[in-house]
Simulated scan of single mutants.
Amino acid sequence: MISRRTWILSLAASPLVLAACGNGTDPAAVAATATATEGAVDTSPEQSGRIAVEAVPEIAATVPQEIRDRGTLVIGTTADGNPPLGFRADDDTTVIGIEPDIALLVAGVLGLEPDLRATSWENLFVSMDSGQFDVGFSNITVTEERKEKYDFASYRVDTLAWEVAKSSGTTSIQEPKDVAGLTVAVGSGTNQEKVLLDWDAQNTTAGLEPVTIQYYAKSTDVYLALKSGRIEAYFGPNPTAAYHVLVAGETKIVGTVPGGGTIQADIAATTKKGDGLVDALAAALNHVIESGAYAKTLARWNLANESVPTSEINPPGLPKTD
């Protein structure tokens, strides 16, 4: 049975198509993708549309012996209400989203029973450090600083998006001058905050109006602020912006930016450095990429534009900041 929320997603497909056309994407191709995936975003706990894969013995054999003997892959993720990354299903208990889906594909290839554990962002890293979690799948961006403690196997392009009210006169945000004088919400301590602060500094140097930056603890507060006009734009992860546009139909995406601003970065499966698991993770990811299961999984969540051609081990990360 199709849930009411799935039905709403199907009806709201057109706003995402309009938003995606503004960043160099062929409108016809976008329309075709939307038609093919319309209604595929399922928020039921059963997740009947989730893509499954079979174990690949030669890849499974590369998993560290301790994990193979245990027979489970302990996966850390977050479910703090940021669909489609990781969030609760209609039963308010089951964790679903693109991050769990990719993690389950990897566990399937490795022949391991997935043990998916939702936690806070801060505890995710603490639990990997202590060995409580084997791997983290939680929209984790590769950075040079993080590479000192963790190994990475990439699986998505890190993309940020500018989201404004549908009624907004702002139609395009592509470079620093486009945000001069705007009131913008951004998450504290995030990569997007670093990008926004850099853009604001460039504007100040150029003699343009400064950005007024506001911080909100919850995404619901951000969208209330957008709706009321207290802020003019929200700068956040592209997946959450695209999903909100699709579901609510009250906002639009007017630009996307690489995760590092001018520097492209990757989202990656993350494991404790030197624990021997990263090679198996990358091999499993490359298998699902080649098999087509990866593309189908991204399409379920309307994130085909964030695909990577191959999974890389410890790719270049965002540089350290002073």
Rank of each mutant, 00 (worst) to 15 (best):
S154C: 07
P45A: 03
P57L: 06
E66W: 00
I98T: 07
V254Y: 10
I102M: 08
L104R: 09
P315E: 04
G76R: 12
S307W: 05
R68W: 08
T72M: 06
G189R: 13
F152K: 13
N139V: 13
T256G: 03
A19L: 04
V164I: 09
D101I: 00
L182S: 06
P15R: 01
G97E: 13
S228E: 14
P315F: 00
G76H: 03
E99V: 04
I313R: 14
L285Y: 14
W162C: 01
R4P: 14
T94D: 13
A153N: 09
T212C: 13
D26Q: 02
F152P: 10
E209Y: 04
G261I: 05
V74R: 14
M128Q: 06
N203A: 01
V245S: 11
Q264R: 03
G71M: 07
C21G: 11
A19V: 09
A13D: 15
D80W: 08
T33Y: 02
Q65H: 07
T251N: 15
A34K: 11
A180W: 14
N82I: 00
T270D: 07
S188A: 12
K273E: 05
D266V: 04
K252P: 08
R70W: 06
V195L: 10
G274K: 12
A269I: 04
F87P: 03
V56L: 07
T6K: 11
N305E: 15
T37L: 01
A36Y: 12
E175Q: 15
L196I: 06
E38D: 14
A241E: 11
